[in-house]
C-alpha cells in the first residue's frame, strides 16, 4: 500500500527543469532509497515529497490526501524531513534541540507535557545519545551531531521519515550506526523511510526498495537484487560495476567499478558532465 505518492510532478530551480512528469509510490512500512549521480534530482524529489518544495505541476499525496490541502502543522505530525546539512547555533544544547521536534504536537507552548518528555527521552535513547543530552551542539563530532538531528526528527513522532543523505561526511562506523538506527526504527517502530544515499552498498544492504534516478528521470525501481546489477548501474551511473553477493547477509555488493564512458571513448561527455556538476 502506498503511503506517499508523487504524481506527475515537475520541479524547477531558477528556471531549469529538474524533473517533469515524475511519478513515485512509496510503500508503507518499507525503507526506500533513492540513488543516482549528483544533480539528478534526488534531493529535489525528496524535498518535494516533504513539501519543502512545492511542485510547479503535479501533486503529492500523503496517506491519499493532497499534501497541498493539508495544514503544514498537520503534515508535520505525520511526516518529517531531515535536510542534508542542518545547522543550529553551536551553543544550543542537545536536549533543547530535540525538544523542538515536539513543536507540531504542542498546544501549550510554554511547557512540555509528560508525553513530550517521554518522546524526547525515547528519541535520545534510540539514537544512543543519552550521554550527551546536556552538551552544547558545537562540542559534538559530526557523527554525534547527525544522531542528534535524527533524534529531533524522531521526537516529531511521525510515521514517515525522509532523510537527505544522512550519512554524508560521517566516518564508516558512524555511517553504519545511523543506518542501523534507521533500520531499527523501520523494523520495530513501523516507520516508513525514504532516504537519499550515495553509497550503493549501503542502499543494497538497508533498503527494501531502491529507486534509481538519472537526469530527472526514474530509470528503474525494484528490490536491491533487481537494482544492484551491472546493467542498471551502467544506466544510472554510467559505470561498469563488478558485483558479488555478500556472504554475510546475502545482499549484492559492488566491490569495484570502472567508468563506462572512458571505455567507450566518450571522455568528452564525461568532461561536459563534470562541468555541469
Amino acid at each position: 500500500m502506498s503511503i506517499l505518492r508523487v504524481e506527475n510532478a515537475e520541479a524547477r530551480y531558477e528556471g531549469h527543469i529538474i524533473f517533469e512528469n515524475l511519478c513515485l509510490d512509496v510503500i508503507k512500512g518499507k525503507i526506500t532509497t533513492i540513488i543516482g549521480p549528483n544533480g539528478c534530482g534526488k534531493s529535489t524529489l525528496l524535498k518535494t515529497m516533504g513539501r519543502i518544495l512545492k511542485p510547479k505541476v503535479g501533486k503529492v499525496y500523503l496517506q491519499e490526501q493532497d499534501i497541498n490541502t493539508l495544514p503544514t502543522q498537520e503534515i508535520a505530525k505525520r511526516l518529517t524531513l531531515l535536510p542534508q546539512n542542518p545547522v543550529a547555533p553551536g551553543e544550543l544544547e542537545v536536549e533543547e534541540l530535540i525538544s523542538y521536534g515536539r513543536y507540531p504536537h504542542r498546544k501549550n507552548i510554554s511547557k512540555l507535557t509528560t508525553e513530550d518528555k517521554e518522546k524526547i527521552e525515547w528519541a535520545l535513547e534510540i539514537t544512543h545519545i543519552l550521554p550527551y543530552r546536556n552538551r552544547p551542539l558545537g562540542s559534538l563530532s559530526g557523527g554525534q551531531r547527525q544522531k542528534v538531528w535524527l533524534a529531533m526528527a524522531l521526537a516529531q513522532d511521525t510515521t514517515v521519515l525522509l532523510l537527505d543523505e544522512p550519512t554524508t561526511y560521517l566516518d564508516l562506523a558512524h555511517q553504519l550506526d545511523v543506518l542501523q538506527i534507521v533500520e531499527n526504527l523501520n523494523q520495530h517502530h513501523q516507520c516508513t523511510v525514504v532516504m537519499v544515499l550515495h553509497d550503493i552498498n549501503h542502499a543494497a544492504r538497508f533498503s527494501h526498495e531502491i529507486v534509481g534516478m538519472r537526469d530527472g528521470n526514474i530509470i528503474a525501481t525494484g528490490s536491491p537484487d533487481e537494482m544492484i546489477t551491472v546493467d542498471i548501474l551502467k544506466q544510472i551511473f554510467h559505470i561498469d560495476a563488478r558485483i558479488m553477493v555478500d556472504p554475510f547477509n546475502g545482499s549484492p555488493v559492488c566491490f569495484g567499478y570502472e567508468s563506462a564512458l572512458a571505455e567507450e571513448g566518450l571522455e568528452l561527455l564525461t568532461k561536459k558532465e563534470n562541468v555541469a556538476t
Binding site: G50, A76, L81, Y100
Partner: peptide, 23 residues
C-alpha cells in the same frame, strides 16, 4: 512574548522549520 518559543525555532534553517510544520 507568546511567540517567544517560535523565535527559538527560527534559529534553525528554513527547511528544518518547514519540516517542523511552522507556517
Amino acid at each position: 512574548y507568546r511567540k517567544s518559543y517560535l523565535l527559538d525555532l527560527f534559529q534553525l534553517e528554513e527547511s528544518s522549520l518547514k519540516s517542523l510544520g511552522v507556517s
